[in-house]
Simulated scan of single mutants.
Amino acid sequence: MTQFSKTLAFLAIGVASSTVAVGQTSTPIGTDAQMNLNALATSPATSNVRMFDNRYQGVKGSPYFLEAWVPGTVELKTNNTGKSEVFKDLRLKYDVFTNLLFAVLPQTKDTIQFSTAPVLTFSLELPTNPSPLLFTRLKEAKALDPALAESFFAVVLDSEGGKAKLVKRVAKSKIEANFKGAYSSGQAYDELIDETQYYVVANGAMRRVKLNRKSVLEALPDQAEKLKSFISSQKIAMNSETDLIKVVAYSQTL
């Protein structure tokens, strides 16, 4: 039995081997691609492999960025070599609440879960987006708040020519049940709710922005007057992600 076959057998009982996957950042195709996917199933990143469980049973709301499995790509660190390996042709699901990533291997259809610790980036191909949505860690996040050091941020608008970029963190918070009896008016179930947070990254710093004019002007103080005029002339309400994208995109032209 090959090592990969053994690993798949272990998957059935929730155990994986820890064979090391080695390689540089690349875009593998054909046989190389399948070898890389096989390596993903046996890499240290998947040493905590397990199948889905019922931990969210009875909880209202979803822990996932998207309920559906979507095509995606994952870039993993290769030990301490400073190199990385890119795994394509996966179907991914991101558990935002626990910061875990799930993948379905295309050939075997096995579902694996791996810690996000070795993950550098991952991208999801969304039906509503013309291009894949990239998730990445940001070095500026730790300086803003050490609790954000391991968080992944979706790149809503990438930087142009070193100008400001817009990212968001799709977090989930849990409201605990407060059920004290059959006739209680309290909350009878645990509930997960969305807490999307937007950030502008500019000049080596990261600032949180809310969906209002005052917040975005404070995040880009050097351009505040021009942005204020732009918002007024374009009659931008500043109450949606689309509005925020328009303003940050305009800031990149200044």
Rank of each mutant, 00 (worst) to 15 (best):
A45K: 10
Q113K: 11
V248N: 01
Q223V: 10
E150N: 04
L40K: 10
L227M: 10
K180F: 11
F10Q: 14
L144K: 11
A16L: 08
T116Q: 01
V104W: 02
S131G: 03
F122L: 06
V201Y: 05
E85H: 15
M238H: 08
A33N: 14
V170R: 14
P130W: 07
D89V: 09
S240E: 07
T27F: 13
G161M: 00
P71G: 02
A249S: 12
V20N: 12
L192Q: 03
E191Q: 10
P63D: 05
S251E: 00
E140H: 04
M1C: 12
F179H: 11
M206V: 04
A39F: 00
N203F: 11
V86N: 02
D190G: 04
P132K: 02
D243Q: 06
Q3H: 14
Y250Q: 07
E218Q: 10
S151P: 09
M238R: 09
R207T: 04
K180P: 08
L105P: 03
L244P: 02
G204I: 01
T31Y: 12
A147Q: 13
I231H: 09
R213A: 08
F135D: 01
K139V: 08
R55I: 04
L92I: 07
T116W: 04
L192W: 03
P146A: 08
T81W: 00
Q34S: 12
K235Y: 04
V74M: 01
T7Q: 14
T98P: 13
I29P: 10
V59E: 04
P146Y: 01
L133K: 04
S5K: 15
Q234L: 10
F135K: 00
P127G: 01
Q223W: 12
R207N: 03
S184C: 06
L120V: 11
K163H: 12
F4T: 09
I13H: 12
F230H: 05
R50C: 01
S240D: 00
S184D: 06
K174A: 09
G58M: 07
F10G: 15
S151W: 08
N48S: 13
Y198D: 09
S131E: 02
I29E: 13
F102I: 06
K172T: 00
L166W: 05
N129Y: 13
K88Q: 13
Q187A: 14
A219R: 02
F153I: 03
R50T: 02
K226A: 14
E241C: 04
L101I: 00
K83N: 12
K83V: 07
N54I: 09
E75R: 15
P63Y: 04
P127F: 00
S151G: 10
L227R: 11
L157T: 07
V119R: 00
T242P: 10
